[in-house]
């Protein structure tokens, strides 16, 4: 249970800066390969999660080319560890996060950024003082959505890091495990309840935040 929270939290927090950068590139960037990047980001959304997990195993596993390299240089191992579960969750949740943030960026009026430039703000300051505050609701929505998705990630996780109690057993894997053993139904039902509560809380929180922000901007 706490493992699941930790996995999702780490997955969301670590992928957030990258998510903002990618969303920015997709929304504003004009560079060759933009469509390719777009496709790549969205791939985990369309691929069967098992395929994503398998690909992760190939690249980030102990024998995988990235995994080997990371192990050698940083001592960072993903395969069959909770960090691997976090990686799988992050990749699966990434499209949702990028999508929400990108929509928010596209809704920002570039005219406001121009106005900031005429007032003396350079590109970075414009982003920090105008764009970022204006897309904050989108970032929050994307983060919460990604968090919820990460909590529920199952297919890629179980393929990549298996289902080791105390190590890589996230909430959905635990539910799955309880359902496999006779008499585990009650345990499974308890966890299902927990999952529902967390999902509802995340949804309400994101609604509340976006409304609060809208109120602030309307100035009433």
């Amino acid at each position: 249970m706490t493992l699941s929270l930790r996995v999702s939290a780490v997955a969301t927090v670590v992928s957030l800066p990258l998510g903002i950068a990618v969303a920015l590139a997709l929304a504003r960037g004009r560079f060759p390969g933009r469509q390719l990047l777009n496709g790549l980001v969205h791939l985990p959304l369309i691929l069967p999660p098992v395929v994503t997990g398998y690909l992760l195993l190939l690249t980030f596993g102990r024998k995988g080319w990235v995994g080997q390299w990371l192990d050698q240089w940083f001592g960072l191992v993903f395969a069959f560890r909770w960090t691997g579960a976090a990686l799988a969750a992050a990749i699966m949740a990434f499209p949702l996060m990028v999508r929400a943030i990108r929509l928010a960026i596209e809704a920002v009026d570039p005219k406001l950024e121009q106005a900031a430039a005429t007032l003396g703000a350079g590109r970075f300051m414009v982003f920090l003082t105008v764009t970022l505050p204006l897309i904050l609701p989108g970032i929050l929505a994307g983060t919460i959505l990604a968090f919820a998705k990460a909590m529920g990630e199952f297919g890629a996780t179980i393929t990549f890091v298996s289902n080791i109690p105390g190590q890589t057993q996230t909430l959905p894997s635990a539910i799955y495990a309880y359902m496999q053993v006779p008499g585990g139904d009650a345990q499974a039902a308890r966890l299902v309840l927990v999952a529902i509560v967390i999902a509802m809380a995340a949804l309400l929180l994101s609604e509340w935040i976006s409304r609060a922000v809208a109120r602030r901007i309307a100035g009433t």
């Binding site: 005429t118 007032l119 204006l134």
Partner: peptide
């Protein structure tokens, strides 16, 4: 010179105040 270094003030037709 980029816009932010010119020190030329600009009042737009549509005010363009920062809503936040």
């Amino acid at each position: 010179q980029p816009a932010h270094r010119r020190r030329i003030g600009y009042v737009f037709q549509d005010a363009r105040l920062f809503p936040h």
